[in-house]
Design a protein around this nucleic acid. Structure first.
Lengths: 151, 151
DNA sequence: CCGGATCCGATAAGATACTG
DNA sequence: CAGTATCTTATCGGATCCGG
C-alpha cells in the first residue's frame, strides 16, 4: 500500500539532457522540466508520485473546499463535497495529512470535534488547483460539446 | 452513468449562498467557484467530470510530453513517458482525443505512422499543468521530507 | 460526532499475444 | 509500427459494523 523510499538525495539532477530530438520547438526548458518530472525525478524526487497523489478527484475537491472555506469539520466536509463517501473522505484526509497538505486538530470534547485546515503547503497547492478548476469551469462546455459532436 | 447537459444556462449562479457558514474568511468568490465546480455544475457543466478525466497521471504526463515536444509518434511517446504501458498509452490517447485535447494524424504509409499533437484546447490545458508540475517539482522535496519525518 | 476495520464487488491497469 | 483483445491481478470505493 505504501511506498517507502528512504535515502532520497534530492535535487542532484544538474546534468539533465534529453534523448534524441533535434526537431524541437524551442521549448527546451519545458522538456527539461518534463524529463525531470518524469524519468529522472521519479527516483530521486518523485514528482510522478506527487502528481499521482494530488491528481485524485477527492483530494482536489477536499483541498479546494478547505481553501475556499478555511476550516471545516469532518461532517461539514462530507456535506460540502458532493458524492464523497464516509470512507473516502477519511482515506483522503489521512493521505493529505500525511503529505503535509492539511492540519488536523482534535478537540477533546464531547461530542468530539475535529477541524481540518490547509497548511502553508496546502495553500500553495490550492493556488495551482484554483487555476485548474477555473480552467475546467471555463472550458467544460467546449469539452462536452466536442464529446457529443463526435458521439 | 452519463450526464447529459442539455439546457445548460451556465453561470446562472448569482444568488449562490452557502449553507451555514458565517465564520468565513472572505473568500466568497472561491466558495462560489467551488460550489459551482462541485454540486451545481456536476449536472449542467460537469467540472467534476472534466477534473476526473484530466486528473490522471498518464493523461497529465501525455499532455505535458506533447506540450514540451510539440509532435510525437506513438513509439516516441511510449519512450518519453517513463513506465507507461502499451495499453495505457493507447487508452489515454483515445480519451484525450475524445475530449479534444489532442489531434491524431494517421499517415497511410508503410510502415504506419501516427502523429499526436496538442489542439488549442490542449495547449490551454498545458498551461495549467505546467503550473502544477512546476509546483510539484518545487515542493516535492518538502513533501517527501514530511512523509518520512512522521513515518 | 469522528473515524477505524473489514468485507466485497466494480473497475483500472500490467502482461502477453495477435492483427493490419 | 500502431493498435486490439484477452487474461489476471491490484487498487478503488461503497456498505456496514464497531469503538472512542
Amino acid at each position: 500500500m505504501d511506498k517507502q523510499e528512504g535515502t532520497a538525495t534530492l535535487l542532484r539532477n544538474s546534468g539533465v539532457t534529453i534523448a534524441g530530438n533535434e526537431e524541437l520547438k524551442g521549448d527546451r526548458k519545458l522538456q527539461e522540466i518534463f524529463n525531470n518530472a518524469n524519468t529522472i525525478a521519479n527516483e530521486i524526487c518523485p514528482v510522478g508520485d506527487v502528481i499521482a497523489r494530488i491528481s485524485d478527484k477527492w483530494s482536489i475537491l477536499s483541498i479546494y473546499a478547505l481553501g475556499a472555506y478555511g476550516k471545516l469539520r469532518f461532517s461539514e466536509l462530507i456535506h460540502k463535497i458532493d458524492g464523497i463517501s464516509h470512507r473516502m473522505l477519511t482515506v483522503t484526509l489521512r493521505n493529505l495529512e500525511g503529505d503535509g497538505f492539511i492540519k488536523r486538530t482534535v478537540h477533546a470534547e464531547v461530542p468530539p470535534r475535529v477541524d481540518y485546515e490547509l497548511t502553508e503547503l496546502g495553500h500553495s497547492l490550492m493556488q495551482q488547483l484554483s487555476g485548474i478548476i477555473g480552467w475546467a469551469e471555463a472550458n467544460g462546455a467546449e469539452i462536452l460539446a466536442f464529446r457529443n459532436k463526435k458521439g
